[in-house]
Write a protein that binds this DNA or RNA. Structure first.
Lengths: 350, 350
DNA sequence: GATTAGCACTCCATCTTCCCGAGTGCTAAA
DNA sequence: TTTAGCACTCGGGAAGATGGAGTGCTAATC
């Protein structure tokens, strides 16, 4: 059963008014906002219908209407017009995107901050590998007689390195051989496989070299572990305290500790989809049941995927949040998507 | 003018009672807590004196007493007994200290979390270099014809590396020479000096090599910049919402956004001192004027210094917070203080 | 049939008032 | 110097009063 155009328009007005005021919207205000083409009485009739069909709710008999999750859903799907970014905002976002970037993490965290402060809601960011990562290349650089640097290059071209100290003396002659061994046997395999192979090698090589080997492998598995793990970061959580729906300290506390403690459960868009909007009870997760989440994904290289999301009340400003998120996700994809590493973007010093 | 023993004891009872209850303490309750050796009337007389001398305050004429900052100060300086850690807590703390540690950052952040959740207040951690850092050693590892890994070893033995892509082809023959150049001219100098030298070299070397050189230097300055910067991390900020003094959402919001936005202003112990306690108005910083801060420092190697602090209401449980912080600071010093790098602690795999 | 004006009714938010009791300060006695 | 006794103070929560925004319904109008 379809809604008449007028009812849709009314719904739109209610949603947008409520989004900005957080107060139930009355028929009179709606009439005014619609240009006075119809009277408040007419609108009251329509409102009654909309309530009956579940698009609106009224907190109590003699109050205005507020949108229900179903109402927001319709709004988001059909009624919402794309939010515009003001020049100031675009500037601000670009700034976060174009910062001097040695590290992907840094840019992403900046992005999160910018989105959060522009939207006025908390934001979260996460990155996750799409497929399993392997070590692609090892290098060992002797530093002095009992320490050397181990460099591991990952499948996605990221590089990690670490200084290792050994109790015993190193013979610089043997280092290249060991590096060779690493590159032939320990590349392109998982952490588990590495450890497996390491075991089998116990008696094939000199004990003194074995120590270095095992430390190197231990480091490599650590790195794989760390990079593969989904790292979630929340930012701007304090913003919710400004929202009237969280004037209740307990509610605020619940959401906030959820955001900082159980970040793993924060939603992500479906595989392939660029964005996902979850409204109130559409959230699986108990703690988010009366909040909404908008989350966008972007590509980093071709084997990693990043997330940037915003959590807010159900009356969150979907139009502007989605606009900002997609601007950002697009920007990040453009930055990282095509290339292997952000560092190549560095403009040569003049 | 000294206080009598009894008055000190009364002050102690008031402080400790108020710390745990957050309610003004009455004379009757004090009498009871002191074993009934004196009557409430006597205590009332002493209380009046303590108020007059500024150690206590009364919110209004007919309420109990609460400690003033001066009262807390006396308590902290003279009356407080060292807090004990329960076995469970020690276990918890040790766990955070002994986690598998590839990264100093990781351990420190775990430490912050543990302290915050045990204390029940927000915590912050920071690390800062004591003296200026320089690059100590460079390495260049060719990967393919137009990319290579740059490895920079810092003065404090930390190692950073990055993959660089170049538009033009690399001649593998020239790489070692370039590395040599880097090691002779660009070690042990500041970022500024590096850029200076780079400029002077413009016409001394081949343009194609210059590109790689300049990217390497740019990376090195980035690294120095990043490592030298004081990085502050706050954790457990949501805990303040559980405290009665922050039932006022606005207050909570103020403190919380301070904790996340203006972290630079968070206090640190004086040079050389292991710990610092700042009570209420003793804080310079406006936003902390009615909170207390306890902060401990620890050593990382001999050129870095770390901070771990707790922010809470003035009635914070100084005894147990200081106990936990110093346990942790000691643990971290023991872990990092003597060695160059945490990774050497890794126990060999069996 | 759809729209509108009119009106009685509802219900929340706010403010005021009232009351209770914990805790005080003071006085007089031990 | 300590203690018992007692009148007094004051904050905070319960109960009640007030007002206004907004509704639903009915009857008239387009």
């Amino acid at each position: 059963m379809e809604l008449t155009d007028r009812k849709k328009q009314i719904l739109k007005v209610v949603v947008e008014d409520y989004i900005s005021s957080a107060e139930p919207v009355g028929s009179k205000a709606i009439a005014q906002q619609m240009g006075g083409s119809v009277s408040s009485a007419t609108i009251r009739n329509d409102l009654a219908d909309l309530v009956e069909q579940g698009y609106l709710e009224q907190p109590h008999t003699s109050a205005g209407r507020i949108p229900s999750p179903k109402g927001y859903r319709l709004y988001v799907n059909e009624l919402m017009e794309g939010g515009r970014l003001s020049p100031v905002e675009t500037e601000r976002l670009n700034q976060a995107l174009h910062m001097k970037m040695e590290q992907l993490d840094r840019v992403v965290s900046q992005a999160g901050k910018a989105v959060s402060s522009l939207a006025g809601y908390p934001a979260y960011t996460a990155t996750a590998g799409k497929k399993k990562l392997f070590a692609r290349h090892f290098d060992l650089l002797p530093v002095d007689e009992n320490s050397c640097i181990v460099v591991v290059m990952l499948g996605n071209n990221r590089v990690k390195s670490q200084l290792l100290h050994l109790q015993l003396m190193l013979d610089p002659e043997q280092i290249p051989a060991l590096a060779n061994l690493l590159n032939t046997h320990f590349t392109n395999c998982s952490a588990d496989e590495m450890n497996q192979k390491l075991l089998h090698m116990t008696d094939q090589i000199l004990p003194r070299l074995f120590l270095l080997l095992s430390q190197t492998v231990a480091y490599a598995t650590d790195v794989l572990d760390e990079v593969g793990r989904r790292e979630v970061q929340t930012v701007g959580a304090s913003q919710i305290l400004k929202l009237p729906e969280f004037r209740d300290v307990d509610k605020a506390h619940d959401l906030m500790s959820f955001l900082t403690d159980e970040q793993a459960e924060l939603p992500a868009p479906d595989e392939g989809a660029p964005m996902k909007i979850l409204i109130g009870p559409e959230n699986v997760c108990e703690a988010l049941r009366d909040t909404s989440v908008v989350v966008a994904s972007y590509d980093i290289g071709d084997d990693m995927r990043g997330l940037i999301g915003v959590v807010g009340p159900t009356r969150m400003d979907y139009a502007s949040v989605t606009a900002r998120l997609s601007y950002f996700a697009d920007g990040l994809t453009r930055l990282f998507g095509k290339k292997d590493l952000p560092s190549t973007k560095e403009e040569p010093k003049t």
